[in-house]
Amino acid sequence: MYYYAEPVGRLIEALNKLPGVGPKTAQRLAFHLLRVPRSEAVTLAKAIVDARDQTSDCSICGNMTDRDPCRICADEARDQAVICVVEDARDVVAIEKTREYHGLYHVLRGVLSPMEGIGPEQLRIRELVARLEGSPVQEVILATNPTVEGEATANYLARQIKAQGIKVTRIAHGLPIGGDLEYADQVTLWRAMEGRREL
């Protein structure tokens, strides 16, 4: 039984492939796009194609950029002595939004995950180690997510980096602002206690 005209079905199928978009949301988005003025649909389609065609990875840090090197790596005002290692380009955006960090970045493009066949060779670890050799970097901040894979990646990187005599730090983990102790899991509470500081 045919529910949709073929072009609409293809649109729903394409939208359904996006992360976090299920069949009902894909259908809702498709019908919304069919109702907007053609110019808006064309603008959206062009923005998608332009973003895909005009962005690439920075040759230095691996962040998503429209120029090489990226604006962060090219900014001489940034602290060249500190590199923050993150899993994904989205993490760079999250940290930049705080407006508190003024160092450089290194994007791994994932974490170690033997179950998924992701080892050090699949990540940008070799590039990080090479980048640190003979550089003015004095500290590397490991900002991988507090997951089993993120912790394993941080521990692996710490061993690699410490061998070069560079200070390695890990972002703190704990309770979010506005969170309740009774709803926190044991690992989060343990991390919060471990990362306590004097007031």
Score class of each variant (00 low, 15 high):
Ile141Val: 15
Gly22Phe: 04
Glu149Thr: 05
Glu13Trp: 08
Ala154Cys: 10
Glu40Ala: 11
Ile171Ser: 02
Pro146Tyr: 04
Met1Ile: 09
Glu76Asp: 15
Ala94Asn: 10
Glu133Lys: 15
Pro7Val: 09
Tyr105Thr: 03
Phe31Met: 06
Asp91Asn: 10
Trp190Met: 13
Ser56Asp: 15
Gln80Ala: 14
Arg126Thr: 14
Ile48Pro: 02
Thr98Glu: 10
Arg109Gln: 14
Val129Lys: 12
Asp88Leu: 04
Ala51Val: 07
Val129Asn: 03
Val85Asp: 02
Asp180His: 13
Glu121Phe: 10
Ala81Asn: 12
Gly178Met: 08
Gly178Cys: 07
Gly179Met: 05
Glu198Trp: 04
Tyr101Val: 00
Lys17Met: 13
Leu123Phe: 06
Val42Thr: 14
Glu198Thr: 11
Ser135Trp: 07
Ala77Asp: 14
Gln27Lys: 15
Gly179Asn: 07
Asp75Met: 05
Leu157Asn: 00
His173Gln: 15
Thr65Cys: 14
Pro19Gly: 07
Asn63Trp: 01
Ala14Cys: 10
Ile161Arg: 00
Asp88Trp: 02
Glu96Ile: 01
Ser59Trp: 06
Val129Ala: 08
Asp68Glu: 13
Glu149Asn: 12
Lys24Ala: 09
Gly22Thr: 08
Leu157Thr: 01
Leu123Met: 13
Gln138Glu: 13
Leu108Asp: 01
Gly179Ala: 14
Glu96Thr: 06
Glu198Asn: 09
Ala30Gln: 02
Pro7Ile: 08
Val168Ala: 04
Ile95His: 01
